[in-house]
């Protein structure tokens, strides 16, 4: 039975080519991922270094003379309430991102659990979860968020914003992840797992979830992006945390003070550029993750 003359078909397990080299090669094939990570890293650097070199207490009103155009002392200029805009951006960007991440994670977290349960067990449970998600998706989200935000009498904190946005953020992930799980659950290896004695929850965690990690990653980034957008939308309308120097609130003050008409260009340039970088970064990251998740999109070397 043994053929000593036949060499093993597969090369013995030698060390893989350097991980860094492999990563760089992949980067060339997946430029979106590189651009996305790069942009987000740049923002992190901006906030990180900013914290060190800039006094964030100057993000409060009356910290500096009002309406100064950009200068050496105030590189981003100041606004009408006397906020140092550079400090505002350094302090506000992480707050906006935090809302997005909390809401995004909550949304996808809840959504995944509901999706896995609905798709694996099917039946009445699936019908209920799907029904609620479908109805929820038809209602205009911003409208619901506005109503919720308006009905909260006290002024909002940043974390409360996150929870409000999260209340709707789970709807779409539930549907999309459910669809993915539905296809996976028909795979033969799930049947083999069942025949090998695995229980339902075990199959969900051990067999289905690992194969969905790239997809969950892409969905998460997408959810974060949507959450940030929703929160900025609410803030621009004045329904956000009034005292916080978030990006959206800055834009609210821009609107309130008619900065556009008055020609105080530095006031609205800074937040818009940063918002643009955030969204571009998240977008390219999504595209890059999508390519990992969906091998059919993979481009040639």
């Amino acid at each position: 039975m043994d053929h000593a003359s036949a060499p093993p078909r597969i090369a013995p397990r030698v060390a893989q080519p350097g991980r860094l080299a492999a990563a760089m090669r992949y980067g060339r094939r997946n430029p979106s991922l590189v651009v996305g990570i790069g942009l987000l890293l740049a923002l992190v650097l901006f906030v990180g270094l900013g914290r060190v070199f800039v006094d964030t207490s100057k993000a409060r009103p009356l910290s500096a003379p009002a309406l100064q155009s950009p200068s050496l002392e105030y590189p981003f200029g100041t606004d009408r309430q006397g906020r140092d805009l550079l400090a505002t951006m350094v302090a506000g960007t992480p707050l906006t991102l935090r809302i997005g991440f909390i809401a995004g994670f909550l949304g996808v977290g809840i959504g995944s659990i509901l999706a896995f349960v609905a798709a694996y067990y099917r039946g009445a449970l699936d019908a209920v979860i799907r029904g609620i998600a479908d109805i929820g998706l038809t209602v205009p989200g911003l409208l619901v968020l506005i109503i919720i935000a308006v009905s909260i009498k006290e002024s909002l904190t940043v974390d409360q914003m996150a929870v409000i946005v999260a209340s709707l953020a789970w709807l779409n992930p539930t549907r999309t992840i459910r669809a993915q799980v539905l296809t996976l659950r028909e795979r033969s290896y799930v049947e083999v797992a069942r025949l090998s004695g695995m229980s339902g929850p075990e199959i969900i965690v051990k067999e289905l979830m690992p194969n969905l990690l790239p997809y969950l990653g892409a969905t998460l980034v997408n959810a974060v992006s949507n959450a940030i957008l929703a929160s900025i939308g609410l803030e621009v309308l004045g329904l956000g945390p009034i005292e916080a120097p978030t990006l959206g609130m800055t834009l609210y003050w821009v609107n309130y003070n008619a900065a556009l008409i008055n020609g105080w260009w530095w006031w609205w340039t800074a937040p818009i550029v940063i918002i643009l970088l955030v969204f571009l970064g998240l977008f390219f990251l999504t595209v890059g993750l999508d390519e990992i998740a969906n091998p059919r999109l993979r481009r040639a070397a």
Binding site: R187, S188, Y189, A193, L195, S196, P210, N211
Partner: peptide
């Protein structure tokens, strides 16, 4: 009663090494 399915690829979870299909029944049973 054991089964051998037709598709020799689909029966494996691509996330795991092939050891997985052997170790799972050993531990479960």
């Amino acid at each position: 009663v054991q089964v051998i399915f037709q598709d020799p690829y689909e029966v494996y979870n691509p996330f795991y090494r092939v050891d997985h299909v052997l170790t799972t029944p050993v531990s479960k049973f």
